[in-house]
Design a protein around this nucleic acid. Structure first.
Lengths: 116, 116
DNA sequence: ACAACACATTCCCATATAGGTATATAATCG
DNA sequence: CGATTATATACCTATATGGGAATGTGTTGT
């Protein structure tokens, strides 16, 4: 075998920057495909394909409105990602069990306040 | 062009299940490659390659110990993922602006406490 | 120095895409 | 009905990439 199908889970759906853009755009409410095309500056078929992937992982839902399809965000599909990454949150916020990291935190604190 | 390089950012690094497994394994502390090979049940070269990807996005750090390389988690590289997905957290926990979701929340509350 | 060990890198290959272009489908309008 | 609009799908191509196998590199032990 060579490569596992990626578009089958939320992690991969979201790994694609365009798809994250789509979700971000949908955060403001449901939108027709054409509007997303405008926002992304991408060709319509590509947007439809990304939407399909997002649909298949349940990250978006569609609603028919005449000849338009209104896509709507379904953030719940992103919960597994949140749950997984949440377990690592301590490593950059608390970091209670590793000394070198604590030192790094202190250094950062007396240096600049930026976090990235 | 055809496909953007994926291994360049944390989102893609983590999209690969094996790499998530590696990070999960490293959550318990630093480990040599050989041990990760055992945990993953994958061949050593593959593990090394996944580790390389994780290294390149800064998700792990290496330390030399004789002829072994001890890999250590650097959860901080996952912060962008957390930050991004966090914005969607409301859609499955609070959901203050959509009635159907509020109802779903209520139903869940009087039903069982599980969230998945 | 030599053998064994731990790990990284390279080469190969099958496959999964992402974007491009053309086309199918469906709804609305005149 | 014919034309236009909105969206989905099919087909093509270049490329990224994951696993497999072989090999390179460095370290330890004798």
């Amino acid at each position: 075998m060579a490569r596992a199908a990626t578009t089958a889970d939320a992690f991969n759906a979201v790994a694609e920057p365009r798809r994250r853009q789509i979700l971000d755009a949908l955060a403001g409410g449901e939108r027709p495909v054409n509007e997303l095309v405008g926002v992304l500056g991408l060709a319509q078929p590509q947007v439809s394909k990304h939407l399909r992937v997002l649909r298949e992982v349940g990250a978006v839902a569609v609603r028919e409105d005449g000849r338009r399809r209104l896509y709507r965000l379904n953030g719940r599909a992103l919960k597994p990602i949140h749950d997984w990454v949440k377990a690592y949150e301590q490593s950059w916020s608390e970091r209670f069990d590793r000394l070198d990291v604590v030192l790094e935190e202190l250094k950062k604190e007396e240096g600049d306040g930026s976090d990235e």
